[in-house]
């Protein structure tokens, strides 16, 4: 799709290759993260420490040319550490609000599940409403606003479980996994990733990002595709495997992410492939099952629901 005078495809491949230079062999994850941001969603990256979560988040923020702040979540963090505090200004004789790190276009919330639920929920309003209420005053966050959070797997010590309400606010949850062999070898041989990270130049500005987000909304979804989506969603709600089915917000997220995926792949309409591509990331953390985790559920879901109605 090359409408509005600029080639989405070109930009996308530039971004992916830029980020890919830092995060070797993870093109698909980069694309997913990009799709998430293009559909105005927050991204949760879950993996073991040292897999490049922070690098990805960092690289993305940088390549998109957005102002970003990073917060390292710890167990003793308080909401004010994120949102900001009012401090008495002696000169003017009144309280002045000192904006916290949340007042930026990209908030990197590192190891989000290491903080207490109280602090986690401080992010809730910011993520959903894109505004912050402190001291009885509501302040708008800058546009666009993304939270890219990373978390360690729940089995790790010193973690709090993210509440479902919080999880639901992340459009996607992706995990990186070990890099492929060649990529890892290249990693050994290559230069210092940190320096490379610093070398990443912004490829777009926030205006272009806005245009691209607008284009996502214009990707066509046919009746047949919506039928498929509907079948998928209904299946999660009816299947005995799933304890909780996909919520309407989840379904919308799925659709929106699929549209972004289609746009990234230079198509004006959504294909079932697009839905299947984003389904594990979008639905994996939303579905719960009695046995097995969400990812296995999603696998089964894709196998059980047919593309065309039988």
């Amino acid at each position: 799709m090359s409408s509005n005078g600029f080639a989405v495809q070109k930009i996308v491949s530039a971004i992916v290759s830029d980020v890919g230079r830092v995060l070797l062999g993870k093109e698909r994850q980069v694309q997913l993260a990009l799709a998430c941001l293009l559909s105005k969603g927050h991204l949760l990256i879950e993996d073991l420490p040292g897999m490049g979560k922070t690098t990805l988040a960092h690289a993305l923020a940088q390549v998109l040319g957005l102002s970003y702040k990073r917060v390292q979540f710890t167990s003793d963090m308080l909401p004010a550490d994120i949102l900001g505090v009012s401090i008495f200004d002696r000169e003017s004789g009144q309280f002045r609000f000192h904006e916290g790190p949340v007042f930026s276009q990209v908030l990197l919330a590192d190891e989000i599940n290491r903080s207490s639920p109280k602090t986690q929920s401080a992010l809730l309003e910011a993520m959903e409403e894109r505004q912050v209420s402190a001291d009885g005053e509501t302040r708008q966050l800058p546009q666009p606003f993304f939270v890219i959070a990373t978390q360690n797997p729940l089995q790790q010590s010193g973690t709090f479980t993210l509440p479902e309400s919080q999880l639901d606010r992340f459009l996607m949850r992706i995990s990186l996994g070990y890099p492929p062999r060649e990529a890892e070898r290249a990693l050994y041989l290559g230069a210092d990733p940190r320096r490379q990270l610093a070398e990443i130049k912004p490829r777009i500005d926030s205006n272009t990002l806005k245009k691209m987000q607008h284009l996502v909304g214009q990707v066509k979804t046919s009746e047949s595709l919506l039928d498929y989506l509907e079948r998928l969603v209904l299946h999660t709600r009816r299947s005995p495997d799933c304890a909780v089915g996909l919520s309407p917000r989840g379904a919308l997220a799925l659709l929106c992410a699929a549209k972004a995926w289609a746009l990234i792949h230079n198509r004006g309409h959504v294909l079932p492939e697009d839905i299947q591509a984003v389904l594990p990331s979008v639905a994996g953390h939303r579905l719960q099952s009695d046995g097995g985790n969400g990812d296995q559920l999603v696998e089964r879901l894709m196998r059980q629901v047919d593309i065309i109605a039988a």
Binding site: P272, E273, I307
Partner: peptide, 9 residues
């Protein structure tokens, strides 16, 4: 064609 297999696959 198996269930859930996309046309491209």
């Amino acid at each position: 064609r198996s269930t859930g297999e996309t046309p491209r696959d």
